[in-house]
Simulated assay, not measured.
Amino acid sequence: MVSIGNFDGVHRGHQLMIQTLVQHARTHKVPAIVFTFDPHPIHLLRPEFAPPELMTIEQRAEVLQELGVDCVIAYPTDHALLNLTAEEFFQQVLCDQLQARGMVEGPNFYFGKDRAGDVALLGQLCERAGMFFEVVEPTICGSRMISSSEVRKSIQNGDITEATSMLGRLYQITGTVGHGAERGRLLGFPTANLTDIKTLIPAGGVYSGVGTIAGKQYPAAIHIGGNPTFQHDEAKVEVHLIGFSGDIYGQALQVQFLEQLRGTQTFTDADALKTQLLIDVESAKKLACQWIDLQ
């Protein structure tokens, strides 16, 4: 039983689709397989329009397997694959290579060269091949149909609460702790400066969140953006792990976002900034401790 798609973010719509896939796979006593693309076809066709990813391919595979998928195939995307017609893709990939017994897809699935194939054509091809086929209805959050694009918009707007509702879990990024200007330490709020972040970074501002280092969780106050108070425009991701002390340079730090506390502000001087940071850290600590206690 096969589902094909990008599955970026593995949001609630994806989760319903995977739940349906796994149920039918167990009924038919066959493996539940997710077929995805690495890289996404847009990186080859229109790289200038490629959106930042919500998850790495490794993170997607991990979450999909937690949902019960038996096998995740990250198919190496090339122009030969993208030039297959819808019918050729169905025959060569689904029938010949995967020997699929059935398919589960979402309503906005397209396949084949120029995205010429849709779920109506896929249904006809599955029927001719004697395959099971089901289209899973879209999942709605408020008035919006949940999609990776909608999740991305919310994160880019700093609306972490909406993104969490659509994802069904906290949005997270992972980076390597690097060296910064150490202004936070001088103000009494040492921060870990995240580098080498491979996924979408939320809008500028201050957030409450949870940082995980070496398997241990800490409440976190996260600042994203430049530092206009000190005339420093370079955007950074700075994480203050509340209650942590120690040297973590060069280590991987995972950050989960709970809520945006405020946008980027310019303060009159360092004292005014420090006063606001005290408020930010207290607010972040309260929200994060509540979340940690619920886990």
Rank of each mutant, 00 (worst) to 15 (best):
F132N: 03
I146E: 03
S154C: 11
E162A: 14
E134I: 13
M131S: 10
K153D: 04
F132Y: 14
S148H: 03
C141A: 15
S148R: 00
S148E: 03
L170R: 09
I160T: 02
E150S: 13
I140V: 15
C141D: 06
G142W: 06
Q156S: 12
S147D: 00
I140M: 15
S143E: 14
I146R: 02
P138A: 01
V135E: 00
V135K: 02
M131L: 15
R169M: 00
K153V: 09
T164P: 05
N157E: 12
M145G: 10
V136E: 04
E137C: 04
F132H: 06
S147Y: 09
E162N: 11
G158E: 07
I160K: 04
R169N: 10
F133P: 08
E150N: 05
T164V: 12
R144D: 13
C141M: 11
A163K: 01
S148N: 01
Q156F: 09
T161M: 04
L170H: 12
T161A: 11
S143W: 05
L170M: 11
E162R: 12
S147I: 04
M145E: 14
R169P: 02
E134P: 07
K153P: 00
E162I: 08
T164L: 06
V135H: 02
I146K: 00
P138M: 05
M131F: 09
D159W: 00
R152T: 00
V135C: 05
S154K: 09
F132P: 02
S149D: 12
T161V: 14
L167H: 06
G158T: 10
S154H: 10
M166D: 02
G168Q: 00
I140L: 13
N157R: 13
G142L: 07
S147V: 03
Q156K: 14
F133W: 07
T161I: 14
R169T: 09
A163L: 06
S149W: 05
S148T: 13
V151G: 06
V136W: 02
S143C: 13
L170Q: 09
I140T: 11
S143I: 14
E150H: 03
I160R: 01
G142D: 02
L170A: 08
S148C: 07
E137T: 12
I155R: 07
S165K: 15
L167Y: 09
F132S: 10
I146L: 01
E137D: 09
I146V: 14
M145Y: 10
E134Y: 12
G158V: 12
M145K: 14
A163V: 08
I160V: 08
G158Q: 07
S149M: 10
M131H: 08
L170P: 00
V151P: 05
R169K: 09
G168C: 03
T161E: 15
M145I: 15
S165W: 10
I140H: 08
E162G: 00
G158M: 10
S154E: 11
M131P: 05
Q156P: 01
N157W: 09
N157Y: 09
G142S: 01
G168R: 01
S149I: 08
C141S: 13
S154M: 15
S147H: 01
E137P: 04
T161W: 08
S149E: 11
I140G: 01
D159Y: 06
M131E: 02
I155T: 04
T139Y: 13
E162L: 14
S154G: 07
S143V: 15
T139N: 03
L167R: 10
G168W: 00
V136A: 03
L170S: 00
M145S: 06
